[in-house]
Design a protein around this nucleic acid. Sequence first.
DNA 1: GATATGTTGTGAAATAATGCACTTTATGCT
DNA 2: AGCATAAAGTGCATTATTTCACAACATATC
Lengths: 216, 216
Amino acid sequence: MINSKIPQATAKRLPIYYRYLGILYNSGKKRISSTELAEAVKVDSATIRRDFSYFGALGKRGYGYDVKSLLDFFKKTLNQDKLTNVALIGVGNLGHALLNYNFHGSNNVRISAAFDIDDRITGTIQSGVPIYPMNEMKEQLVEQQIEVVILTVPSPVAQRVTDELVTAGIRGILNFTPLRVNVQDGVRIQNVDLTNELQTLIYFLNHVDQPQASTK
Amino acid sequence: MINSKIPQATAKRLPIYYRYLGILYNSGKKRISSTELAEAVKVDSATIRRDFSYFGALGKRGYGYDVKSLLDFFKKTLNQDKLTNVALIGVGNLGHALLNYNFHGSNNVRISAAFDIDDRITGTIQSGVPIYPMNEMKEQLVEQQIEVVILTVPSPVAQRVTDELVTAGIRGILNFTPLRVNVQDGVRIQNVDLTNELQTLIYFLNHVDQPQASTK
DNA sequence: GATATGTTGTGAAATAATGCACTTTATGCT
DNA sequence: AGCATAAAGTGCATTATTTCACAACATATC
Ligand SMILES: NC(=O)c1ccc[n+]([C@@H]2O[C@H](COP(=O)([O-])OP(=O)(O)OC[C@H]3O[C@@H](n4cnc5c(N)ncnc54)[C@H](O)[C@@H]3O)[C@@H](O)[C@H]2O)c1
Ligand SMILES: NC(=O)c1ccc[n+]([C@@H]2O[C@H](COP(=O)([O-])OP(=O)(O)OC[C@H]3O[C@@H](n4cnc5c(N)ncnc54)[C@H](O)[C@@H]3O)[C@@H](O)[C@H]2O)c1
């Protein structure tokens, strides 16, 4: 629990920096300048320097940033130095894809349990992850000390399932349903709304005259 | 091509309003106030009124907004009054889930063509969508007048495939790969980075003391 | 050691987004 | 018809974010 004065916009960019630093490190690069990094991650170099500066003086003037130590720093900051277990609720179309993918690569997040109501799949193991029935959810979440879940259930049941999750002590939900679920204070929702993303893209294509590249 | 003075932040919220208005309309509701809408979509009521006001006076003082006409207005604004065909590149794990889902519901976006290199699946039809081999991509995109694609190929080939897409005249890419691809001016990229979303969520859980609810 | 070079870290300006609080105006009730 | 009420639309203050541009300083070169 360090400095919580980090702007939201900065916090959202940290994973992007982290990933690219990993790639740089693996390619054997020893140092990187904000300008070079800017090119790769499509964020203005001044923004990068400002972002980094919230965490102190991470670079050396006239030299740039040391890839290894910057990588280590962000690994710690993003809690990627220890494994975080998350659960997946709803192993359907999308849930199955996420389960299969399971954030492999240079990552320290793992789906370690999945839940569903469909008794044709509960009790089985998919991609190494056991699928439990819903009536075991609370028990398993508590036992496995899981605080973060990925929600991929049909939207009509999303609020009901969310309520159960909250009573099970969950603190964060990555919500793929289009429903804006209600939760008490202290529970964080991160919405991923794919239909929105597509509609927004189409909107910009039809309404922005001055062509602009990337977003987010 | 109307007024392009709409703030980005507002534009990103339009699909959220649109979807909720559809739900309201289907439930038979005739009118809605900004306060009531705010509750459902988790956006401050003043922000909603401001957002709407960029498009003119859409409501009636003392009454609220007429659900039907607001819905119609946003349908037009979001180009949901006509069908938009999009293509999917890379029918793997994630691509398959999206193909299967195909944005059904009250939506006017359809994946009408898919592409892959794997000759075990090219030539087949999945969820009603034909999967073409990559050497037919340019031809098909031009012929079907597709301007928007969903990119779900492995990240090592993402830049190469993107270059092909650009030469095929694509104007928008919904990019699910973690790579920040390079495109010329005039092509819009909307990045959806699921690993980022999860890492950001975990970051906030560990670093924000004052509990705050929703995001985005 | 002195000088040239490159790149950070940051003050300050510019831009963007939010939200308060008030004015205005339509509606519904008596 | 008149009055009370509700809620939109908006000026403005506040807050957040980005970007410019430069002084400060580390490193490399001679
Ligand atoms: N599939 C996509 O590509 C896609 C894209 C955008 C949004 N979404 C959203 O993601 C969510 C899931 O979509 P999907 O296509 O995977 O749906 P799906 O129907 O394929 O899968 C839903 C899964 O949830 C399970 N389930 C149903 N009720 C449950 C309950 N009460 N408790 C636990 N599990 C329950 C079902 O058994 C099923 O396995 C939906 O809200 C959808 O709108 C999906
Ligand atoms: N699956 C997920 O849940 C998930 C989550 C986050 C990010 N992603 C990202 O989405 C992308 C796709 O992930 P995935 O899990 O579906 O991968 P995948 O390997 O299952 O699917 C990739 C598909 O692309 C095809 N392909 C390979 N090279 C191609 C080429 N040159 N041209 C056209 N098609 C080609 C493959 O044949 C395969 O069908 C990756 O970049 C991944 O990082 C996936």
